[in-house]
């Protein structure tokens, strides 16, 4: 198997706030292979989003954050890169989609202008005209019916679903090898969420983009990911291929998460045991990779 696109080893994060230390990540390790769609699933406060921000190098800008551990991206040690080189990776080799599309887009500029900025990061010499052509074809890729009209619109003139498609098109514009999607459908209605996720899945599969998919929604993860990491309070408690995880969850925490999801087949609301001491049990690792 080829070298992973991203590998994180023993990543720790501590916040120092007013002399208090808050341990947020207790040494998490994960890797994403080429073209693989990996989900990181957990509840709020478990450390999902900070992990994404560390990979992008956004959290490192914070003086309160103490980070240790190694991050390798396309075989390069990210921590050894200069700030400038690291910045150059963002929006080109790795990109991100955030939860709320409408607040991720700038309401002051039309979509076209923002698209131009994105494309210029990948190719500084691109002409305005070429950028527009490229943006049109990217918007067609995300099944936007009238790309011309959308390019000349502002984010507030469009629906949330449409904005999220624009975000996806922008994130994939420079053909990144890694896409980080942080709760990409959570702010949308269920039917729109389902459409958007299918679209995103088809697109990354066609292009062979690796994805780190961050979500609290197990159902969404089941539809989207090849492999899942379950994170609980800054520790990875289980990792397994998606099918295996859903058929046979191994860790007490994963089992509880799974049991807590209401089923459309009925069965009432689960009675979850108040006792959760097994949530801190050691990690269940059920990923068998043929390392040759």
């Amino acid at each position: 198997m080829s070298k992973p696109i991203l590998s994180i080893d023993d990543l720790k994060l501590t916040f120092k706030i007013y002399g208090n230390q808050v341990d947020v990540l207790h040494g998490i390790s994960l890797h994403i292979a080429h073209g693989e769609k990996v989900a990181l699933v957990g509840e709020s406060g478990s450390g999902k989003s900070v992990t994404a921000r560390i990979i992008l190098g956004l959290l490192q800008e914070l003086t309160a954050a103490r980070i240790s551990g190694s991050l390798q991206f396309e075989g390069v040690d990210l921590e050894k890169l200069s700030r400038r080189d690291r910045r150059a990776l963002r929006g080109t080799r790795m990109s991100m989609i955030f939860q709320d599309p409408t607040s991720s887009l700038n309401p002051v500029y039309p979509i076209n202008t923002q698209f131009y900025d994105v494309l210029r990061r990948g190719n500084a010499k691109i002409s305005v005209k070429d950028a527009r052509m490229r943006a049109l074809s990217l918007l067609e890729d995300v099944s936007i019916p009238e790309p011309e009209r959308v390019l000349d619109s502002y984010s507030f003139q469009m629906s949330g679903g449409m904005n999220q498609r624009v975000m996806i098109a922008m994130a994939l514009a420079n053909e990144p090898s890694l896409l980080i999607a942080d709760e990409p459908g959570t702010a949308l209605d269920v039917t729109v969420q389902a459409q958007t996720l299918h679209l995103m899945r088809d697109l990354v599969e066609r292009r062979g983009t690796s994805v780190l998919f961050i979500s609290h929604n197990l159902g969404v993860v089941r539809e989207f990911a090849d492999r899942v990491y379950v994170i609980y309070r800054g520790r990875i408690v289980e990792q397994a291929p998606t099918r295996e995880l859903f058929h046979n969850p191994g860790h007490a925490y994963t089992k509880a998460l799974m049991a807590a999801v209401p089923r459309i087949t009925g069965g009432g609301i689960p009675d979850l045991p108040a006792d959760n001491k097994h949530f801190e049990d050691p990690m269940v690792d059920r990923f068998r990779e043929d390392v040759q």
Binding site: Q193, G219, R263
Partner: peptide, 29 residues
């Protein structure tokens, strides 16, 4: 119970089919 075993309106069906689900039994339903 009836709504889920036999949804009459197309919109109801599209809502039910869009819910992210976690088990094979739900897929079957």
């Amino acid at each position: 119970q009836n709504l889920f075993s036999n949804p009459a309106h197309a919109y109801t069906r599209s809502l039910i089919s869009a819910i992210p689900i976690v088990t094979d039994e739900e897929d079957e339903l």
